[in-house]
Simulated scan of single mutants.
Amino acid sequence: MKKTLLAVCFGGATLLSPLAMAEDSFPRLETIGVGEVTAQPDMAMFTVAVEETRKSAQEAKQAVDKAVTAFMDRLQKSGVKRADIESANIYLHPQYHRSNDNPPELVGYQATRQVTVMVRELDKLNTYLDNALGDGINHIQNIELKVSDAEKYQEQARQAAIKDAQSKAKSLAKGFDTDIEGVWNIRYFDSMPRPVMARMAMDASIETKATYQDAEITFRDRVEVVFRLEK
């Protein structure tokens, strides 16, 4: 894990926020603190789908149901809890053959079902994806990498942002031969880490494991603080 603190400096009238200027005048200083923490993912959520086309709607449904059932059974036998598996409803679409001279001709039905899986042991992700292929799943729609203790890293980023705001305020006050008397106002906006999406083909090789195991998730936070200066 590594931390990076980013400094933001203001010039002229931008040091005074509109909220601060609306109150009785007194010496003040406004800073923005930004904290950043990176962590390696240890979980993942992936969504796969099976899509089949058959002459009848019933045949198409049976084909996708068979693949989804086999995949879900294999996941549970591998230790994945049922609560970590979500199977979406089936979607059926009629398929038509169209030509310029004739009306559309119904040629079959396309059925689609999705399965979303929460993987709590990242080193097993590649195995689950290989199993999906073997069970008839024919689409990997997305893989989102996650961190199990995300709240801990977000709190570290928040504390880094607070220290950043304090450090800049102390530095600026010292540069202008004054001292900070206390905090007058704090503004805070919730920050959420951006999801890390991994790309993988259905025939992914062993070497592909490193592409998500070596990835990093960045947690950022920000705080705006108005400090009261000594008169």
Rank of each mutant, 00 (worst) to 15 (best):
residue 130 D to Y: 15
residue 85 I to S: 00
residue 107 V to T: 09
residue 16 L to I: 14
residue 151 E to W: 13
residue 33 G to H: 00
residue 137 I to V: 06
residue 220 R to C: 08
residue 8 V to W: 13
residue 42 D to A: 03
residue 157 A to S: 04
residue 6 L to H: 13
residue 193 P to M: 06
residue 12 G to Y: 06
residue 215 A to V: 02
residue 52 E to I: 00
residue 146 K to H: 09
residue 94 P to G: 08
residue 106 L to C: 07
residue 230 E to I: 12
residue 14 T to H: 14
residue 163 K to M: 15
residue 82 R to C: 15
residue 42 D to C: 03
residue 206 I to H: 15
residue 120 R to Y: 07
residue 41 P to W: 01
residue 121 E to I: 07
residue 200 M to V: 08
residue 213 Q to W: 08
residue 43 M to G: 07
residue 28 R to C: 08
residue 5 L to Q: 11
residue 53 T to S: 05
residue 224 E to G: 11
residue 133 L to H: 13
residue 189 F to S: 14
residue 10 F to D: 05
residue 63 A to F: 02
residue 19 L to T: 13
residue 90 I to Y: 01
residue 228 R to C: 09
residue 56 S to P: 04
residue 198 A to T: 05
residue 122 L to V: 05
residue 73 D to W: 10
residue 203 D to E: 14
residue 200 M to R: 04
residue 80 V to Y: 02
residue 38 T to Q: 15
residue 222 R to P: 02
residue 107 V to P: 03
residue 116 T to Y: 03
residue 172 L to C: 06
residue 117 V to Y: 00
residue 218 T to F: 10
residue 128 Y to N: 04
residue 23 E to M: 13
residue 143 I to F: 03
residue 63 A to E: 00
residue 174 K to F: 13
residue 65 D to S: 06
residue 83 A to M: 11
residue 106 L to N: 05
residue 138 N to Q: 05
residue 203 D to Q: 12
residue 184 W to D: 14
residue 7 A to E: 12
residue 45 M to D: 12
residue 170 K to A: 12
residue 134 G to I: 09
residue 13 A to C: 13
residue 177 D to G: 10
residue 81 K to V: 11
residue 139 H to I: 13
residue 182 G to P: 01
residue 54 R to T: 01
residue 34 V to A: 08
residue 29 L to A: 00
residue 103 P to E: 15
residue 116 T to L: 04
residue 154 Q to F: 10
residue 155 E to Q: 10
